[in-house]
Design a binder for these strands. Structure first.
Lengths: 245, 245
DNA sequence: GCGTTCTCTTGATCTGGATCAAGGAGGGCC
DNA sequence: GGCCCTCCTTGATCCAGATCAAGAGAACGC
């Protein structure tokens, strides 16, 4: 792990309008800017472990990390993917509940917890945004509960590809809606751990989706969606994908 | 559904110190008291459906309700149990994401959404408490993801009994820690829908736990925990059960 | 260039939990 | 009391996905 000295300007930050600071005005942003610092991690590196003191909380600026829970015998479930703008840690709790691991090169924008909590108390925009983000994550977690509890392996893999598609469209909005070429930020193993499957089953289902013409693969990490509607059908979700407002 | 006219006194409310209003002082409570009203529902009754306008948000005062997600072909996953003090609805979103169903007689303490949102904006204690509750629910949802994705049927049923045990101890704290006689507020079918299992598997696992001496049953709804440590072992969780602060 | 290593794919077999199919056991109601 | 009706239990069988096993690429170091 590396602490980076360069203090970049918040107003040019790539996650400025989606992160916890999204609603802050210039003055509030100044205060955050004064206490922030950056850290970065290499692929595979542990960012934090369950039970660790959470002295700092942070936002993902770039890269992908996972939030996971491990049973004593080693069985592991990823309970959240952390993509740019996602938040790590929670105010008011000193210990982390999950393991956090970088799966690509990750840069975090960090704050010491106590000063940040003070700022939240004084800055309604920050508290509101934290609540909104927590509720969005709660909805995402509950959707994932449906996936884990009731979907078939095929539906799980299709749903996962749609999730990556949905999240990869957002950043700049470029070529919006037709960004059908996905670069998976995860290995098959991470996918399996997220989907509640084994690596072999994930591999077979990707092959199955390819053979049925819904997707194409280029190497291991690139998936091209050939038939978005077909993929949505395979995912078992009702068309709308939920969320109208 | 029945709207109840009697305006009970908040300060004597059974969920006063656990619900969304837990942190409010007397003055704040007065303001809430002015806009609240009660509704009650019979077992099996639908409280709200996915996509409904959420004109009111509410807290569960008594009884048990479920939050569930249904696939087009009928497969259903319960994504949350709503016990007394739990909150239904979210500020800032007009449409509900899940179906809400009463599974016993349920009484809700309701607020119209827009006035409530106004109050949240002016009452930091309310916003803070909402954030805390949302984050607690997020942790619970993530723990459930581990259960759904990785636990065996036996572990799921044992974990469920421990969950009910944990939640049934809290209310008054009476006979704390030794409240080993559980009255299940759910049928086997609801348990199965919550655990990502079928009703037959739940039944077999309850029988299995009984035959191994960990629990005893009295009729269908009463479970007596004979060996709490054994039940924890069967649940597959590490001993501590997490959460130290 | 060429092992070495890591990840992914594919095949064969096994198994936990689903599904299909009968009862049993209360409990409410006349 | 007796008859439904609902919920639960138990047994028999099936099957999706796990597990076990063996390569096949691709990436990397030297």
């Amino acid at each position: 792990m590396q602490v980076i000295d360069i203090r970049e300007n918040c107003s040019e930050c790539p996650i400025r309008h989606r992160a916890v600071c999204a609603r802050c005005n210039d003055q509030e942003l100044d205060r955050l800017e004064q206490i922030k610092f950056y850290r970065s991690y290499e692929p595979g590196q542990t960012i934090a472990l369950r039970g660790d003191d959470m002295e700092t909380i942070s936002s993902v600026v770039s890269g992908t990390a996972t939030l996971s829970r491990v049973m004593e015998d080693g069985r592991t479930q990823i309970v959240g993917l952390l993509l740019p703008s996602d938040f790590i840690g929670r105010p008011g709790r000193a210990h982390l509940q999950y393991d956090v691991t970088a799966i690509s090169k990750v840069t975090l924008c960090c704050f010491r917890r106590l000063p940040f909590e003070g700022l939240v108390a004084e800055t309604p925009h920050l508290g509101e945004r934290m609540l909104e983000m927590a509720l969005d994550e709660l909805d995402a977690a509950r959707d994932w509960m449906l996936l884990l509890g009731r979907k078939t392996a095929r539906e799980k893999v299709a749903s996962f590809l749609l999730l990556i598609h949905k999240r990869s469209v957002r950043p700049g909005g470029e070529t919006m809606g037709e960004n059908l070429r996905l670069e998976l930020p995860l290995t098959r193993e991470v996918m399996a751990t997220y989907l509640g499957l084994t690596i072999e089953t994930v591999s077979r289902q990707v092959t199955g989706l390819r053979k049925s013409g819904v997707i194409e693969t280029e190497g291991k990490k690139i998936i091209v969606i050939r038939d978005l509607i077909g993929l949505m059908t395979e995912s078992g979700d009702d068309d709308d994908g939920g969320m109208l407002d």
